[in-house]
Design a protein around this nucleic acid. Structure first.
Lengths: 210, 210
DNA sequence: GTAATAGTGTCTCTGAGACACTATCGG
DNA sequence: CCGATAGTGTCTCAGAGACACTATTAC
């Protein structure tokens, strides 16, 4: 451990605490939702994103996963970093920098009873979590404009209609069928199979390339 | 100040230190350069980005500005946040999270003698500063693909050739004249003046709109 | 056959890029 | 006039979007 001239280590200097907050998004009832929890202790009952303080030997990703586990009972995802929120007044318990994260999971990953809110009609959240949700939704939507099912929410094989339904749910609006199909076909390969047992012409099955 | 059940404040818990590092980019000799400094004390002589630890009541932007002032003697810019670098082994003095920032300034802002390196042919830097410079260059280049002179490096009035020269320097390669002009004209308005005193047909002067 | 869904041919519009051309200065 | 730089007309190509059409199943 490094020491300065007076024998103090880095951690001995006063410095901000660091928290992670995770906007865990999911498609529920055909719309993009965010998972929330009610705070207890200080300011109990207020809706907030799952978050936690970063421990001294923990990566941000590890802290984000721990927040999901402790607050929502969810394991095994890989949150992406958005940015640091550093308004000095954002947390009245002290000086806290918050690194916002985003992840997108299937609705089946959320334990029964998990509280969620549609990102486009959400209640006011604690701290600056509203801005975090807005940034998270924009991040996920931008990726879904560029790439088919970037989070791998669909099964290994899926029809173009299923893919389009996912993208419409994430983006929050209808997409033109023909343009959408031509747009995503470049990143898909047909498996040769078809989806049977439904009404109408059977749909070809695809998987993502690369 | 908030206290837990045992009377400890947030800052009493062990937590990572937070640093800012700034990739200060500039156009020098027609190419994108990054300003560096030589570290002293521990690992003296190694080239690094200007950086500093974030004080407990300081915003990230304020810390970034302070790092530029203390290491390079530069004031008055507005660095943008890139992302947090959190490899546990990135700093052998202790657990340090680094928030990378980027800014782009005119070469005239750099004090005489400032050490710089072309971003595309740079020496190996300390810590993970190589990755920060790469991210910073990509960030600045992406903005210059979308928008004319986003950092306002040119004078209030400029010719299209001057603007194109700036973009070629930032992007690191030649641009087609006619396509470039049509691309940026949407965001410019002619001032009515012309640049005289040069060889050839006088060029019209423009300013950025909005 | 009909209803329903899957998939495509084609037209238009727009923007990027390439190329060559015209325009206007100093000398 | 010439050399040099500024600026434009136009062609082609590719992708987005709109529309209508064809294809293939269950019943």
């Amino acid at each position: 451990m490094w020491r300065d001239e007076t024998g103090r280590s880095l951690a001995d200097y006063p410095h901000p605490s660091v928290a992670v907050d995770v906007a865990l998004l999911s498609v529920v009832d055909g719309a993009l939702h965010v998972a929330l929890h009610r705070r207890d202790g200080h300011a109990a009952g207020e809706l907030a994103l799952p978050g936690t303080f970063v421990r001294i030997d923990e990566t941000l990703a590890a802290a984000a996963l721990r927040a999901l586990r402790e607050h929502l009972g969810i394991t095994g995802r890989s949150p992406e970093q958005l940015r640091v929120f550093d308004d000095p007044a954002r947390d009245d318990r002290g000086r806290v920098l918050a690194v916002a994260h985003v992840d997108l999971v299937g609705a089946d990953v959320l334990p029964a009873g998990t509280e969620t809110a549609a990102v486009d009609r959400r209640p006011t959240l604690a701290f600056d979590h509203d801005a975090m949700v807005a940034a998270a939704a924009e991040h996920v939507r931008a990726r879904h404009r560029r790439e088919p099912d970037p989070a791998g929410l669909l099964d290994a094989e899926f029809t173009l209609a299923e893919l389009q339904g996912l993208h419409e749910a994430v983006l929050g609006g209808p997409l033109p069928k023909d343009t959408f199909r031509r747009h995503v076909l470049a990143d898909l390969e047909p498996t040769g199979g078809v989806r049977t047992g439904t009404v109408g012409k059977p749909a070809r099955l695809y998987r993502r390339t690369a």
